[in-house]
Design a protein around this nucleic acid. Structure first.
Lengths: 218, 218
DNA sequence: CGCATAACGCACCGTTTAGTTACTTACACA
DNA sequence: TGTGTAAGTAACTAAACGGTGCGTTATGCG
């Protein structure tokens, strides 16, 4: 009978005490709070409250506010790289693959606005949290190599210009999408138009694809 | 004799009490502190100390921390627009004018890295400080109109493509320069190269000019 | 079942924070 | 040269902050 109860509780994950579930709740709450208010602006108490966890647990699992931020940020980097890896760039015509990549970046930022503000926070503190993360370096470089392969294939198939650097292209694709979102609030005020209106978004992604295609294609 | 002394002190600006000079010292110190640590991370005491002013004066002149930030940010926007207006785009061949604009943006960010982090902070708080600034809107729109004029002239002279939106182009020029700088710390870690090394900077500005010219020119 | 361990909670700490009160002092102008 | 006003100062506050000491309780395992 106690065995059965144990099996049931494991299966339904309705344990009163569940370290993994608590950790995850804290991470989700931290992601919200850090992305909304920045690293300095985020409140540890607010994270604990939102996670329905005791503040003590936060320090138990993540050591410090910075430790928690590091974990959140690293997870977000891993997540975007993982989704990028799902892109089937290798089996698409080069031009279509390029367009797919631009569109993916755009849509990822729309769906995950937190990523942008987290990265901004990390740059404000000069990348102090990720400085020593070996995994982040390797996965990012693997992605640049994938783009280089795509560029090479495009050149071979005579649709891409020769001599384009994959890292520079990668930065440019990110920038024209990233900038629009991170500055959407000041942008909307200054240009007196709603940057997040559906028509505005459509106009922008069209313009961005055009920009990249004209840069890369023959 | 007291008249002479007064005249002298006004001329040399060596008054013991000088409201304008104090205000300026506070603004300069605030710009440093806000850009270094963000709005929330900035410390009012640190600003007062660096400005060699009493904290009370800060509240006397700018009302609050947010009031000070608003003033700093508005001044920085006015400054970049003023420098942009010095650009002689009207009397340059269209392609040269375009290249001049891209290069100016790039060099402005190199010379004024504070501008970028201040804008980032403002976007984190959803443009709360500049929301009601009428001057900012008008000067920005005037600039977009200048770019539109340049684009029109380029089309007439048969060197630019037709139908390019000045606002979109303006955003794109800003983005490819801005992103590189704001993310230079995470970028340097992830790509394992120094984003601020002279060779890296040169490579990037070349790539950016290429990107814009390919987008706009025939 | 009994028990070691890990999950969890409460109440608290010392420090730092933005902002203020109450005061003194230099200076422009009459 | 006297004086009202604005510039400037020091010491303070109440609240909020990140972080902890220490006790309690659920749970998985032998």
């Amino acid at each position: 009978m106690p065995l059965e109860k144990s099996r049931l509780s494991q299966a339904t994950k309705k344990r009163v005490r569940d370290a993994d579930a608590t950790k995850l709740r804290i991470l989700e709450a931290a992601k919200k709070e850090f992305s909304k208010n920045g690293l300095e602006g985020a409140r540890v108490d607010a994270i604990a409250l939102d996670a329905k966890a005791n503040k003590r647990m936060l320090y138990h699992y993540f050591e410090s506010k910075d430790g928690l931020f590091r974990t959140v940020l690293e997870r977000e980097y891993l997540k975007i790289r993982a989704e990028e890896n799902l892109l089937d760039l290798e089996n698409l015509p080069p031009r279509t693959a390029l367009e797919t990549l631009v569109r993916f970046t755009w849509e990822y930022y729309i769906a995950n606005p937190e990523f942008i503000t987290l990265v901004n926070s990390e740059n404000l503190c000069k990348a102090a949290h990720i400085k020593n993360s070996a995994t982040l370096k390797t996965i990012s470089q693997k992605f640049v190599r994938r783009i280089q392969t795509l560029l090479d294939r495009g050149v071979r198939e005579n649709v891409f210009r020769d001599g384009i650097d994959a890292a520079q292209l990668n930065i440019t694709i990110a920038s024209i999408n990233y900038y629009y979102f991170t500055n959407r609030f000041t942008g909307s005020v200054i240009f007196e138009r709603d940057f997040t209106a559906p028509e505005a978004l459509e106009e922008r992604i069209y313009f961005n694809i055009e920009t990249i295609c004209r840069l890369v294609c023959k």
